[in-house]
């Protein structure tokens, strides 16, 4: 049975169709969910896609966090449902405290739009379970506020609990410990700045994002939430 994936659309989100397209291309079924909705319906997994929710006003994700749909997202996440936040979606999950830390402006204040080389650090998350530790992936980044930061206690917790999923090989944005993606303690809620949905076909320059999204679809198909 193919996994049914909800893709949340906030005002200013702009990667929702890429996300649905990637899910569909990999054998899942993606459908859009509007930020003003209050329930998710029958779903196996959730994607918070990239973009500029609410214009990134105040801080990226700061306003989106209070959207009506976020209560249902929190309930789904806390029940163990697979949730991935990509780029702006990662920022929303951090602002909503579903993931620790915060995303700051890039080192050097440069908007980065380029392929990035990632290294898989942990496979104990819904996004990396089909990958192998040490595997190198080329996945594009496209962000201004992607420099991951957290306090040192949180960082050592992330490390000791094997929750750093992905690291940049050359750390283009100045993230602490070169972190590109993390998970929550249970591994079902994940966030990353790179865009795996833009790397699922050789036509797009890389297919390396597919292993991540396939892991996610597999976890969603096996999930019993929703």
């Amino acid at each position: 049975m193919s996994a049914s994936i909800g893709v949340i659309v906030f005002p200013g989100t702009n990667c929702e169709h890429d996300a649905v397209g990637a899910v569909d291309a990999l054998g899942g079924e993606g459908r859009l969910i509007f930020h003003t909705d209050t329930s998710l319906g029958q779903l196996d997994g959730l994607i918070l896609p990239g973009g500029f929710a609410h214009g990134d006003y105040l801080r990226p994700g700061a306003i989106a966090r209070f959207s009506p749909i976020m209560e249902a997202v929190r309930t789904f996440a806390e029940a163990g449902g697979p949730v991935v936040g990509i780029c702006n979606g990662f920022q929303v999950l951090c602002e909503a405290h579903l993931l620790p830390g915060a995303l700051q402006k890039n080192r050097g204040l440069t908007f980065l739009c380029q392929p990035s080389e990632l290294e898989v650090v942990s496979t104990s998350s819904v996004l990396t379970s089909s990958a192998t530790v040490g595997q190198r992936l080329s996945v594009p980044i496209n962000h201004f506020s992607g420099s991951y930061t957290c306090d040192l206690d949180t960082l050592s917790q992330l490390e000791s609990q094997d929750r750093i999923m992905l690291r940049y090989v050359d750390n283009p944005n100045g993230s602490i410990d070169s972190i590109a993606g993390i998970s929550n303690e249970a591994g079902n809620v994940v966030g990353l700045m790179p865009h795996p949905e833009r790397a699922v076909s050789s036509l797009l320059g890389s297919e390396d994002g597919a292993v991540l999204l396939r892991s996610f679809l597999g976890a969603a198909a096996a999930a019993t939430v929703g």
Binding site: Q104, K105, L109, T149
Partner: peptide, 10 residues
Amino acid sequence: GIADPEGATI
């Protein structure tokens, strides 16, 4: 202790 890229650029 939190990096301030804006302050540093200014």
